[in-house]
Design a protein around this nucleic acid. Structure first.
Length: 196
DNA sequence: TATTTGATTCTT
DNA sequence: AGAATCAAATAT
C-alpha cells in the first residue's frame, strides 16, 4: 500500500505555541526544489508567544515586518537577520495573536544542520517564502512521518540570542530532541515547568 | 534622514 | 572577542 504523505494541516498550528513547538520535534520539514525533495527531521525549535513576550518580534507592535504573525496559523514568517542569515518560523495560534515557532535545527539523512541560518541556507529558504502557506504540501511543508518519541526525549532550555528580553529570556521555550543517556539524565534535574 | 540593533555564523 | 552586512526599528 502506497504511503500517504501526512502534511500537517492548519489546525495543527492553530494551538498554543509552546505545544506546537514541543510537538514539532520529530516531525519533518520538507522542501521541494525543482522536483527534488529534501526532508529533515526537526530536532530543535523555539516558541515566540504573543504580544507580551519581549523576545517575540511582534511585542513591538504590528508592523510591516511582524504583520504576518498576526495572521492565520500555518504560514511562514521568514526574515533576514544580521544582514546575512534567514530564519524560518511557522505562525501559530488564532489570528490577531502574534506568535510563531522558529525552526532551529534539523537532521537530513542523519546529518545535523544546526542553526536557523544554516538550515535556511541548506533548504534554500529566503524572504521570498515569507507569508507562504506551509499547509499545501507544495514547495515547503511539514510532515508527520510517524516518529514515536518517548517521554523525556524532548528537553526544554532557555531561548538563544534574546538576552534583551529580560525575564522573558529565561522562559524554557527552546525544545530539543535529546537522546537520554545516564550522563545527560544526571544533568537534567530541573523540570522547568514545561507541559508534556 | 541618520543611527542603532539584531530569534546568527564564522574567523581571529 | 569581533567582523560580516543590511532591513527594520528607533532616534533626530
Amino acid at each position: 500500500m502506497k504511503p500517504t504523505k501526512k502534511v500537517l494541516p492548519r489546525p495543527y498550528f492553530n494551538r498554543p505555541t509552546v505545544e506546537v513547538a514541543r510537538s514539532l520535534i520529530g516531525k519533518y520539514l520538507v522542501r521541494e526544489i525543482d522536483g527534488r525533495v529534501l526532508a529533515g527531521k526537526i530536532v530543535e525549535v523555539e516558541a515566540y508567544v504573543g504580544p507580551e513576550d519581549k523576545a517575540c518580534h511582534a511585542s513591538k507592535g504590528r508592523t510591516q515586518r511582524t504583520d504576518v504573525m498576526f495572521g492565520p496559523a500555518g504560514v511562514a514568517y521568514v526574515y533576514l537577520i544580521y544582514g546575512m542569515y534567514h530564519c524560518l518560523n511557522v505562525v501559530t495560534e488564532r489570528e490577531e495573536f502574534p506568535s510563531a515557532v522558529l525552526i532551529r535545527a534539523i537532521e537530513i539523512d542523519g546529518e545535523l544542520t544546526d542553526g536557523p541560518g544554516r538550515l535556511c541556507r541548506a533548504l534554500q529558504i529566503d524572504r521570498r517564502l515569507n507569508r507562504a502557506d506551509l499547509t499545501t504540501g507544495e514547495s515547503i511543508w511539514f510532515e508527520d512521518r510517524g516518529v514515536a518519541l518517548k517521554r523525556g526525549d524532548v528537553s526544554a532550555f532557555p531561548r538563544i540570542g534574546v538576552e534583551y528580553a529580560g525575564e522573558w529570556a529565561q522562559k524554557p521555550w527552546r525544545f530539543r530532541l535529546c537522546r537520554i543517556t545516564p550522563s545527560t539524565r544526571a544533568g537534567r534535574t530541573k523540570k522547568q515547568g514545561v507541559p508534556d
